[in-house]
């Protein structure tokens, strides 16, 4: 595709801190290259704001290569913007045309309070992981990788679930602000492997309990999460999580 430059109108959510109300502000950026990433376009805007003595826009980012899950912008009505299976940092400006108006909002969920502007607090996800998203192993010599045979399909499904980068787009997309796609990915990738078996029951129970405590909504299987997930985490993981929960709920002895 040929390179082109564009001028854009941006409608960006500005909010001082978690207590203040916040509002949309209009900005104009000019001569944006179609080869820039969306975040680079924001860098240009921020340079401009700093130059004008204004407060630059705060947004989360880290790797800028689609693997860390830090970037989080709700662009024109879709988490991570118009492209499928894509993160905000990997969204490129060729997705837009000269003269477009782009509306940029933070993830909206009470469990993800806005810290400032477009940056939200996603530590709720960390606490869900801490509640059981791990396996306990004694230290010592590393076990040979092939010591435990694992069916290839299970390994593949587990790996696909482990792709989740914890970005929170699933919560942002869901009408219920439910974290079930995230949780189901974190439960599934361990539930599919023998290493996850010993803590299988307590894991799902504790992680669900933590998710509820953090104030996420409950799942109604609408599928908006799957449609927006940058890592294409499948909604069938949610059904697997339900099965894990049902199994643990009915058979756990405590």
């Amino acid at each position: 595709m040929e390179h082109y430059n564009m001028n854009l109108n941006l409608k960006v959510w500005r909010q001082k801190n978690c207590k203040s109300k916040g509002e949309f502000k209009l900005y104009r950026v000019e001569n944006i290259s179609s080869e820039m990433s969306f975040l680079e376009m924001f860098d240009v805007l921020n340079e401009q704001l700093i130059h004008d003595g204004e407060d630059p826009i705060t947004f989360d980012h880290d790797c800028r290569e689609g693997i860390c899950g830090a970037c989080s912008m709700y662009i024109n009505g879709k988490p991570h913007g118009p492209w499928q299976a894509n993160t905000t940092c990997q969204l490129h400006m060729r997705a837009f045309n000269d003269g477009d108006t782009v509306v940029v909002e933070p993830w909206r969920a009470d469990a993800f309070p806005v810290i400032k502007d477009l940056m939200v607090d996603r530590s709720a996800f960390d606490r869900i992981i801490q509640a059981g998203g791990y396996i306990s192993v004694n230290t010592g010599n590393a076990v040979d990788g092939n010591a435990i045979p694992i069916p290839k399909d299970d390994a593949d499904a587990s790996f696909a679930a482990a792709m989740c980068i914890g970005c929170g787009a699933c919560v942002a997309a869901c009408k219920n602000s439910s974290a079930m796609l995230f949780l189901s990915a974190k439960v599934s990738h361990l539930a599919l492997l023998p290493q996850g078996a010993p803590e299988r029951k307590s894991r799902v129970m504790n992680m669900v309990a933590q998710m509820d405590k953090e104030g996420f909504g409950s799942c109604t299987n609408t599928g908006a999460c799957e449609a927006t997930c940058p890592k294409e985490i499948s909604i069938t993981n949610i059904a697997r999580l339900n099965k894990e929960y049902l199994g643990a709920g009915f058979t756990s002895d405590k």
Partner: peptide, 8 residues
């Protein structure tokens, strides 16, 4: 009574 339980 958890979110998943209510859904069940």
């Amino acid at each position: 009574t958890s979110s998943v339980g209510k859904k069940l």
